[in-house]
Amino acid sequence: MARLNILCIESSFLLREGLKTLLGQMGKPFSMEECDVVVDDLAKVLRKAKPQLVIANPDMLTAIGAFPREMPECDHRIFYTGLVNEQTADKAKARFDFLLPVHADKLSLSRRLEEILTAIFGKTADSETGTLSERELSILKHIALGLTNSDIGEQLFISPHTVMTHRKNITRKLGIKTVSGLTVYAILNKLIKVEELQVSDRHEAQL
């Protein structure tokens, strides 16, 4: 998954560190640009940081009117989360897409952050769930039998480059990197039989 770029505008060091800790526990890769002074020229800061998500203390943004959601320099929409407390005025809150009450307990903060990240990224894609497609299963079978990328390409009428792409996806989905590891997986899941393997080993030895 792509790394989430976050711009945090908040003067409190402890709050920024706390946010990083919470985000780190969400299990999604992110990097955070930090700004600890009041921002007069938001557009300038955005151009530099190119964030997908801005998490800001409302008091530290002096510009009036709506926040810029799109920038010519960014190829994505920018979302805004306000760090709010009991004193934050409704008018200030209304400018943000999401709100994070800074005095909430850890569980509600995590849930809130999870909702925000899901709203930005959408649900976890199929590629992350570990289910292999029919095509990938068939390629996996061939890999386990010891065939090379070009062999597989020839048999399935696809380019070696395409085989490589499938292999990368298989490795990512299963969490197995080596050919021998994939072979074990294939046997455990009855995609191939141990006997087939020995036949193909002999075949290889003859070549």
């Binding site: 299963l174 969490g175 197995i176 990197k177 080596t178 021998s180 590891g181 074990v184 997986y185 455990l188």
Partner: peptide, 8 residues
């Protein structure tokens, strides 16, 4: 290989 072994 060690990574694979763990995951298996």
């Amino acid at each position: 290989k060690l990574f694979d072994l763990k995951n298996i």
